[in-house]
Nucleic acid binder design. Structure first.
Length: 251
DNA sequence: GCAATATGACAAT
DNA sequence: TTGTCCTATTGCA
């Protein structure tokens, strides 16, 4: 379920295991040219929204996007044979990370990387994610808030599950427009807090007392009040909302 | 065993 | 708005 919290979790885990080390880089599947990277030192692994960026010494950055189905497997025995379809393996003497089914795995030059950073909105899980800028960008859109938060140029890292749960937690209807700076700020603060919980837990957490439960996402009834959850398509994804507790904000 | 489904983002129409 | 990509997982027969 690769939304931003898992991307950051992967980045943290892989940075700890790989940074400063020489890595063996291969593409068992053969669809990535690993030669420029094999045997080099990893300088760092970074998350930017739903993107992962790998910096290796004297080589262009590697850009990975997991898309809908991508995932990593970790082996504590780097001699473990990769399963079929592994696009990229990064291995030290102690650990191997296998990338499976990514939407993107490619070398990226600096201009493209700069363009990616420009096109990516504030990330609630990055220290450089600025609240004022986040509020400004959200208010600058004229689309419903449930569409704005999925737009990675507005805020980055939010996916469909987080959209449903964060808007519930903030009491905002996904269809609401012009929610105002106060509500936008509360939504950002909620994202910062809960995505960090999700990153540390490895899953979407919208109730710290019940980390496996959701309030409205993929539920028939609101977990708080029991009302039938309303579903419709918003920004090409299924939106979920409690009709009793999430209302358009008063002007 | 097989079909349906998925937390995403594109390009093409 | 629809189609395409990528693969694992889930649920049903």
């Amino acid at each position: 379920m690769p939304e931003g919290h898992l991307i950051h979790r992967y980045a943290r885990e892989q940075h700890e295991a790989l940074a400063g080390r020489v890595v063996t880089v291969t593409s068992p599947q053969g669809r990535f040219d690993a030669r420029p990277y094999d045997g080099r030192v990893v300088e760092g692994v970074e998350a930017l929204g739903k993107h992962l960026l790998y910096r290796l010494e004297d080589a262009p950055p590697i850009h990975v996007h997991l898309g809908m189905q991508g995932l990593f497997l970790r082996y504590d025995d780097p001699a473990a044979p990769p399963r079929k379809g592994v696009r990229l393996r990064l291995a030290t003497g102690e650990t191997a990370f296998d990338l499976i089914a990514p939407a993107r795995c490619e070398a990226m030059d600096e201009p493209a990387l700069a363009a990616l950073r420009t096109a990516t909105g504030p990330d609630p899980l990055r220290g450089d994610g600025d609240k004022g800028e986040a509020v400004r960008r959200l208010l600058a859109t004229r689309v419903p808030v449930g569409a704005a938060v999925l737009d990675q140029a507005v805020w980055s890292g939010i996916g469909n599950a987080w959209r449903a749960e964060l808007l519930f937690l903030t009491g905002l209807d996904p269809a609401a427009r012009d929610i105002g700076a106060e509500a936008a700020g509360r939504l950002w603060d909620t994202a910062v807090r809960y995505l960090a919980l999700g990153r540390d837990a490895g899953q979407v957490v919208s109730d710290p007392d019940a980390p496996d439960e959701r309030w409205v996402y993929k539920r028939e009834r609101c977990r708080r009040c029991g009302a039938a959850v309303r579903t419709w398509t918003l920004a090409s994804r299924t939106a979920y909302a409690c009709p009793a507790e999430q209302r358009p904000q008063a002007p």
